[in-house]
Design a binder for these strands. Structure first.
Lengths: 155, 155
DNA sequence: TACATTTGTATCGCAAACGATACAATCGCC
DNA sequence: GGCGATTGTATCGTTTGCGATACAAATGTA
């Protein structure tokens, strides 16, 4: 492909990636509003529902988010009483993040959220094969880019 | 898939989409820094390089960005003398955005940017077929979600 | 002309996202 | 114990992204 063609918006890979990511967030927002959480906060809950009581860095390693992004985000979640933050006793440098009763309960209302993406695509639904190929490519890119971009979390 | 399984980070589609999008931005950042622009500013330039002199709303329609996001972004680009903003004479409600000489010149240095994504994936490169399938799925999602989420630009 | 409606742009406030940097606790070594 | 290095957390400033809202110009109706 020539330099000229590479700069056409239509030929970009980065733009539709960026746009779809934002559109998914927009699709989820009304549902997340009902739970009084934001999209990154929902991701934090996903991580904690899977494994409770993790350090800030552990959460960041899974979500590829820096601590300076997570700290204020977690503080807001603590204010809403979704999580608790306590210093670890064995290593007091660490802050352990754990779910409150309220945070655990939200899990029951959560399964409708990933389903909203499927529902939002009803007009032209993806085949199971298409979804699998898409997911595999995304994870391939995730791994490749994790090592390319400045590694922070032992990548 | 059961409710429990749907909430595993591994089974999410939204998370890798979100993460890869951020990683691509991170990959581009050092290159964009050399041009003294940010990632969304780069997208605006892509649009204007393709067709100069467009209204704020026209740009927003292509990038799926609201005017309240674009206005301050374009003001910063105007300060850097990459673009000019002038009221349209036929309809003074519209603000026409056009490239300056400086903005046009940047196009020559830009082709290396989309190539950085290919280069950043060298460890486990995608096949041409894989890229095509990925792009097709992304555009399919883009169209489906554009009609699902609150349409603003006549979608 | 008067006035409401529509269309388009600008402003404000909040929540990310991240680089740079400061700060605190711990660990290793002596 | 003392002290520098390491590790982890918190703060600051800038840029996006968007809802809500204010404002300006054009349009429609009478």
């Amino acid at each position: 492909m020539k330099g000229e063609e590479m700069l056409l918006l239509e030929n970009q890979l980065c733009f539709p990636l960026y746009a779809v990511s934002r559109l998914v967030t927009q699709l989820y927002t009304p549902l997340l509003d009902q739970l009084d959480i934001t999209y990154p906060q929902y991701l934090v809950l996903l991580v904690l529902w899977e494994q409770d009581s993790q350090s800030v860095s552990d959460i960041g390693a899974q979500l590829l988010l820096e601590t300076n992004t997570l700290t204020p985000l977690l503080k807001r979640m603590e204010q809403k009483e979704l999580i608790q933050r306590t210093r670890a006793t064995d290593d007091e440098r660490k802050v352990l993040v754990s779910l409150t009763t309220r945070g655990k309960k939200l899990k029951q209302k959560a399964p409708c959220i990933p389903q909203a993406l499927i529902a939002g695509m009803q007009d032209s639904p993806l085949t199971a094969r298409e979804v699998e190929a898409f997911r595999r490519t995304l994870h391939k890119m995730l791994e490749a880019l994790r090592s390319s971009t400045a590694p922070v979390h032992g990548g």
